[in-house]
Design a protein around this nucleic acid. Structure first.
Lengths: 205, 205
DNA sequence: GACTTTCATTGACGTTTGTCAAGAAAGAAA
DNA sequence: TTTCTTTCTTGACAAACGTCAATGAAAGTC
């Protein structure tokens, strides 16, 4: 737990990946993409390392290229998982990064991760220089906001068992990748309850 | 229910309000603000009117100047409230508006409302013309995303009673403005349970 | 004022969940 | 393999929640 990240020596393949990802969007031409890629650093973090601690100010935003990152809160000494980021997802601790305030949560790599990292400062510079890049970002933010609206709505309107079934249907890969006690926390129930929910579902079939 | 919106004849005061709101941000100069305000229409909607129905494609984004708007889903014939927007909040059904897909929820004015309305199409034009306006929007989206991250996290990590206490502390105005059965739905419990939670809290004091 | 409608409260009862504790299963390390 | 650690499962019991039904209170309508 909490080992230091090792810088990747062979970043070529990764850089190619992110280049493709950025160029997919037609707003960005190859010249602009070039400078954006220059600003991005590729980092490899082993399983168990912490990207951001509670109390720290977030300085970077991430694009996850390989692995899985968990967002969690520490409430009365208990870890409460609130999100899992997986491949091709971009994320940042917006509240902390945008306002420069300490983060209220942790970001942990729960698998060996390869991340494209862009500093918030550099990001703002690129926005100034390339309005198209800001358009790309705004559009992405709108998508993410739509996702969050949907997730919050689902969480409010459904029961734990429904949420697990929803997970089975919409993000089945998570169920095999992630320890059950973390999934339970993410569903808002205790590990024991998730175990019983799984049993109930199994018996119904 | 569902009456047509009446156009406000006296929009002067409202327009002044939104002008101030936009100019507060230093990125926008008065010339830019002028054109943005031109594109905005002020609408008055009486209590009970529906801004957006399930199945419709959202074409507008809103800035709420007076009143309260409720977002809800219809699940098995039951209304499930997922959000309340109040004064000075900007909002849109992002998923529907950004992707042009039918909305999965309703937006209802639960009080007489005054709204600044901007069409998504016009919004995109203004972004093209004024990168600063897009910056303003991106920044606002980041704030909102931060809020949603926080709300989702709170919902996952807390119990209904905690959520009600949280509401009492952070949004006390909602409790007096909003019917209890809608609040209950928003907290993810039945009206009966909210009634009992209130009783429990009252007895503890 | 009398009536209707809507909303909030309360009781009863079955279901679900949290917690504590014990044991089984699966992985990791020696 | 054996040992150790972590994770998952199961049981028991109390607390919380959902549902159904009845009662009260408040607001709107005629």
């Amino acid at each position: 737990m909490g080992k230091n990240p090792r810088r990747n020596i062979e970043t070529l393949e990764s850089t190619e990946g992110i280049s493709k990802c950025i160029l997919k969007n037609r707003l960005i031409n190859s010249e602009e993409a070039e400078e954006i890629i220059q600003a991005i650093r590729i980092e490899n973090h082993p399983k168990g390392s912490i990207l951001l601690k509670e109390g720290e100010v977030a300085k970077d935003c991430y694009l996850l290229m390989k692995g899985c990152v968990r967002q969690y809160f520490l409430v009365d000494g208990v870890e409460k998982t609130t999100f899992f980021f997986v491949e091709e997802q971009g994320f940042s601790s917006f509240k902390s990064a945008a306002k420069g305030i300490p983060s209220d949560h942790f970001l942990e790599c729960i698998e060996d991760c390869t991340l494209a990292v862009l500093s918030v400062q550099k990001e703002l510079e690129l926005y100034q220089k390339y309005p198209n890049f800001e358009s790309l970002s705004r559009s992405g933010l709108e998508d993410q906001l739509g996702d969050y609206q949907e997730m919050l709505a689902k969480f409010i309107t459904s029961k734990p068992e429904d949420r697990y079934l929803d997970l089975l249907e919409n993000r089945p890969e998570l169920i095999n990748r992630i320890p059950q006690y973390q999934l339970a926390s993410y569903l808002g129930v205790s590990p024991e309850t998730l175990s019983r929910i799984r049993k109930r579902i199994f018996l119904k079939k």
